[in-house]
Design a protein around this nucleic acid. Structure first.
Lengths: 125, 125
DNA sequence: CAGAATCCAAGCCGATACTG
DNA sequence: CAGTATCGGCTTGGATTCTG
């Protein structure tokens, strides 16, 4: 079966996961457990409310995160990876393995990427 | 063997292949054959000299492309994927497969991504 | 032919303040 | 608690011109 139109799923994927904060959020949620808004905020050092809510909304729109709101007082909102988001993890893992060859050249990445949860996998190799 | 420092190969990879034009160039060169500067320029519609030379230099610095200069008159410069660049193709292929699920929602991507050479793989599915 | 230099525009992102 | 509104700067990329 052939799709006649010319499109670029690769660039689309890059646009979905690109941006400064999205990967950090995905990595933080990679275990599949739901996390609350402020929990995520604490887990991604330096992120502002604007960037966090924007990123969460974006990832939710693409079906990578699920947002569940509990109307308690105060309100509680939880985010977690969808099944589709988990399929993304495998792809990102491959990308991470590939990028691992460059770590020696970029030690300055240590400082602002301590939150990346793929690092254990990289370290154990 | 364990690397004690905390780094993020995933973000590093994203920074290497990120940017507006780099993927287009990589896709254009994916067959492994060398291409000349202006050949690449024609193959990536809309790119300017500044962006092209900047992107090529960046990709060369990370060992994804090899640059070979022939001092003829006029000078001839050829670029081709390195072996390391070819390993990247496999990873990108996975990312492209993942992104393929979103094509229906983003038909506007047709117009400015006709150059993406992963599209045949996506179409045949 | 294969770029480099310069200047300019747009958009991403940050800081701060405010709200249901 | 979980966001939104607004403003402003800075980075990224675009247009044009020039050169070995």
């Amino acid at each position: 079966m052939k799709n006649q139109v010319e499109i670029c799923p690769l660039r689309l994927a890059m646009d979905i996961i690109g941006g400064k904060w999205r990967l950090s959020i995905i990595c933080l949620l990679k275990d599949g457990r739901p996390m609350r808004y402020n929990q995520i905020k604490r887990g991604v050092p330096g992120i502002t409310n604007v960037m966090l809510s924007q990123s969460l909304k974006h990832l939710e729109e693409y079906g990578i995160l699920h947002r569940e709101q509990y109307n308690e007082v105060p309100v509680r909102v939880e985010y977690q990876l969808t099944d589709n988001g988990k399929t993304l993890l495998n792809v990102l893992s491959g990308l991470s393995d590939w990028g691992n060859q460059y770590i020696d050249r970029h030690q300055e990445y240590q400082s602002h990427c301590a939150e990346c949860l793929f690092r254990e996998a990289a370290e154990s190799k």
